[in-house]
């Protein structure tokens, strides 16, 4: 058992992937920042000085305190407090957690739908392909954000405010996942079209394997690297979409804020000079999305077989 893990680790250390990672400063810094943010978000309950979900810890007298370094700051609240008197640092840690959860969840759903439909369309071809790709085209031409806003609006109107707030995380994962599946389906379909002409597929067919087995056991593993690249970028997109929906009031409620709803709740107070409530979570959001996008760019350069072999 140990020998297997050691050899796998060795193989990883010998790989082109690790080699190019070591030489790319942007990739290293982005990965370090992302890792830090993910760890901070995962361990938010341990790290955060206060629990923003616990109403007993909130004192309205502490509202709109500025961050440390400005006059009137309280050292107990390093990044200041929001309009309800919640510690902004803790709220941001918990908010990053919610945003990341929705981002990952939505991409898992997208990947599931996208891989399934992309494989079906690419491998079966014909009518299945025509119908699925038409749906994808139309949905993409409407822009995924528009689809997400409309679906969110309809859900909110049919569930009512209170109910929607309670199940908001699952709703957002569903909305963003369904709105963005065509992006992954198109990528999968394109690589399936290239793969299915290769000899190993013919060989599998001659050996009498079923369609399902060829699709999922033989072709799918060979299309994973483009899926991996696009899924990374899609996490960034999902986090932005979630923030946009929450900003419009179609997302996370203020009692259980994501980065987007923090920005929204702070925006109401920006005219009174409390810029930190909205701009600090905004900065966190931009850094999070930026490092994921930079990693996505790097992954595309490394995993693009055309560049690699050529």
């Amino acid at each position: 058992m140990t020998t297997a893990t050691v050899s796998r680790w060795d193989r990883f250390r010998e790989s082109f992937f690790w080699y190019s990672f070591k030489r790319d400063k942007v990739a290293i810094v982005s990965f370090a920042v992302l890792l830090l943010m993910v760890l901070a978000a995962v361990f938010a309950p341990l790290l955060a000085p206060a629990d923003p979900y616990d109403l007993a810890q909130i004192n309205i007298m502490n509202s709109e305190l500025p961050p440390v370094g400005m006059s009137g700051a309280d050292p107990a609240f390093p990044l200041g407090t929001d309009a309800q008197g919640r510690d902004l640092l803790s709220t941001i840690l918990y908010g990053t957690r919610v945003s990341l959860m929705i981002g990952f969840g939505a991409v898992v759903l997208q990947a599931f739908l996208g891989i399934l439909f992309g494989l079906l369309a690419g491998y079966l071809g014909g009518k299945v392909d025509a119908v699925l790709m038409r749906i994808a085209d139309v949905q993409l031409s409407f822009s995924t954000l528009m689809v997400a806003i409309i679906v969110g609006a309809v859900f909110k109107a049919s569930f009512g405010n209170l109910m929607f707030g309670e199940i908001a995380i699952y709703m957002l994962i569903f909305i963003i996942g369904v709105a963005e599946w065509p992006q992954i389906a198109r990528t999968v379909r394109a690589s399936v079209l290239a793969e299915k002409k290769k000899e190993y597929v013919d060989a599998a067919k001659v050996m009498g394997f079923g369609t399902r087995r060829i699709m999922f056991r033989h072709i799918l593993p060979n299309t994973l690297s483009p899926i991996f690249v696009i899924a990374t970028v899609q996490i960034a997109n999902a986090i932005i979409s979630e923030a946009a929906l929450s900003f419009l009031g179609l997302g996370m409620p203020e009692t259980q804020p994501s980065l987007g709803s923090l920005i929204k709740s702070g925006f109401d107070y920006i005219q009174s000079g409390s810029w930190w409530i909205t701009l600090i979570p905004g900065l966190v959001l931009v850094v999070l999305v930026l490092v994921i996008n930079l990693l996505g760019d790097w992954l595309r350069d490394v995993m693009n077989p055309r560049l690699y072999k050529g």
């Binding site: 932005i240 923030a243 946009a244 920006i270 909205t278 999305v289 930026l290 996008n293 760019d297």
Partner: peptide
């Protein structure tokens, strides 16, 4: 422009207002 793609439109708007 890489950084610009990562900034949501409402955040740009808020920063401009500030």
């Amino acid at each position: 422009s890489t950084v610009g793609i990562s900034i949501p439109v409402f955040l740009t708007a808020i920063v401009l207002i500030q």
